[in-house]
């Protein structure tokens, strides 16, 4: 079954088409790497998938249902450029808040379990404002994974992270992929992304230039895709 399906997505900013008729499907348990230059439309696409932005035309479905429905949104976990946790709240309060927003049955226990998993249980009552960069990022990762999302949407996940957070995230992503979750990520870090990805999509000035399985030659030579399908 397709976990995520985008059908003929257009997005206009005024008269300018930022996305032009993009269609792709991601089967359950696959990991799609969205590649493309800055401004190609990767973030716009991800925001549409996450329900943060509406497509001008076309439809996104999650397991066959409209992606904007509350039920679909509770199956999505997002990790964007910002860490999306509150500076004035403690680590525990932050995770409890999101557990409640997702309607999880035992917010406190879930939050604690994730603090442990990301190595933050010692500072659980510390305010995020006082956290180091790496700690904040690990908390953000916990926030995104907390409700056991079946689909993970990651916007440049590795760019802002420090080494330890990258390790935590990569571990979680491999675990997620192997347990049948679907991952879509936009990225610049070709090597890290391609190792994890099972499929690759290249967006070029708002158009889908390539979409297919990740092949051995891409892994051997990360620039292969850009050379063959990128802009002339």
């Amino acid at each position: 079954m397709n976990a995520v399906a985008a059908a003929r997505i257009w997005k206009f900013y005024g008269d300018y088409p930022a996305l032009r008729e993009i269609s792709f499907e991601v089967a359950e348990g696959r990991c799609l790497a969205l590649l493309g230059r800055n401004g190609a439309g990767k973030t716009t696409m991800l925001r549409i998938l996450a329900g943060l932005s509406r497509a001008s035309k076309g439809q996104v479905t999650l397991f066959g249902k409209d992606a904007a429905a509350a039920e679909s949104r509770s199956r999505i976990g997002i990790l964007g450029h910002g860490i999306a946790v509150y500076d004035e709240l403690s680590a525990l309060e932050n995770l409890q808040l999101f557990a409640r927003l997702y309607g999880l049955p035992r917010p406190a226990e879930t939050a604690l379990a994730w603090l442990e998993k990301t190595g933050l249980e010692r500072v659980k009552n510390g305010l995020v404002r006082e956290f180091s960069r790496g700690m904040r990022q690990r908390l953000a990762v916990a926030r995104a994974f907390l409700h056991n999302p079946s689909v993970l949407l990651l916007d440049e996940p590795f760019t802002a992270l420090d080494d330890r957070a990258i390790a935590v995230l990569q571990g979680l992503l491999v675990e997620a992929r192997d347990s049948g979750r679907t991952i879509i990520m936009s990225t610049h870090q070709l090597r890290e992304a391609l190792e994890l990805a099972t499929d690759v999509a290249l967006i070029n000035r708002g158009r889908l230039a390539y979409c297919g399985e990740r092949t051995g030659e891409m892994l051997a030579d990360p620039t292969w895709l850009y050379r063959n399908y990128g802009e002339a």
Partner: peptide
């Protein structure tokens, strides 16, 4: 706006 929290709230199932 700080830390893009609005995105996380809007992506959650909360209407």
């Amino acid at each position: 706006l700080q830390n893009d929290c609005l995105d996380a709230l809007l992506a959650s199932p909360v209407p």
